[in-house]
Design a protein around this nucleic acid. Sequence first.
DNA 1: ACAAGAACGTTGATTGGTCAACTAATCTGC
DNA 2: GCAGATTAGTTGACCAATCAACGTTCTTGT
Lengths: 162, 162
Amino acid sequence: MKDDLNREADGSGLDLHQFLTFRLARVQAKLNAQATRILREVAGLSLTQWRIIALIGNASGDGPTRSADLTRAAEFDKGQFSRKLKTLVETGLVVAQVDERDNRVQLLSLSDAGQALFDRTWPTMQARQAALRATITAEERDALISALDKLEAASERTEFAP
Amino acid sequence: MKDDLNREADGSGLDLHQFLTFRLARVQAKLNAQATRILREVAGLSLTQWRIIALIGNASGDGPTRSADLTRAAEFDKGQFSRKLKTLVETGLVVAQVDERDNRVQLLSLSDAGQALFDRTWPTMQARQAALRATITAEERDALISALDKLEAASERTEFAP
DNA sequence: ACAAGAACGTTGATTGGTCAACTAATCTGC
DNA sequence: GCAGATTAGTTGACCAATCAACGTTCTTGT
């Protein structure tokens, strides 16, 4: 029994660990925590705040961007987007103006401060992505991406429920 | 400009999609939603409730299991575990008794109802895992597991933060 | 034996994520 | 042009996840 407890305690013998989704969730949570920690240190931002700034900063090749385009592209919940955006506008990092052609839409752009913050943090986060990619081989990366595609497709099927 | 918006709207051109973490998070969220939906249909349980039941049901090869062993093995937050466990005890699916040898620890076991529910849902969830695994090739699975191991290790490093 | 420290579990607070209802504005077909 | 359907964004409600603080109980070192 003691052996059994140890087998569970070290986390390697539990049946749940054979579950792919379990491993995925754990790794994703840790990567998330890492990104959160980095952003708190270098920018004082939460991950979601930064994601919104990154979306705007990346999309603003030519002029302001529509909120709905960002939420759709990133599959971001529009409710949460609306709330987080509000704080970013209040802190002066993002500028939102109503589209004169369509009074429903918000045209978003980074303020000078927001752009500066984006310019400063974007390379850092890109470097992290590169560092993460560098930890796995090219074959693993290709297989990982392919596997993620297939798992994502499978996650949208309904046949698994009896 | 219109082309640019479309490029973003269809979700394939945005730089963020090259981020591995982005893909991981999306896939994980969808798998999570799928599991949640299945469990709601077949058992009326939330995913976290079921995970606790599954942990207890799996670990109870010989006798009741200690709470702390489960939270450690599954890297489950003990605060959340405590709260969710409380609801499971209240609904009569889990039995918790104080260890007479150590009055701090809770010894957990499934009630008859809990065991019946576990016996009924465990094959379903295992079948889902098998179905998910079947969507990817053996090479992809090995690479995926290996990549997850490496990414998990990388997520615990601090060198990425400047 | 006893003080310092660690482990167990509870609770509170904060944030993230999801879903649904709702208002306001625009588009569509007739 | 006008009624009905769509779309944009806000708000409320709820659950999951993480962190910190705390009381209680055991363990350890001296």
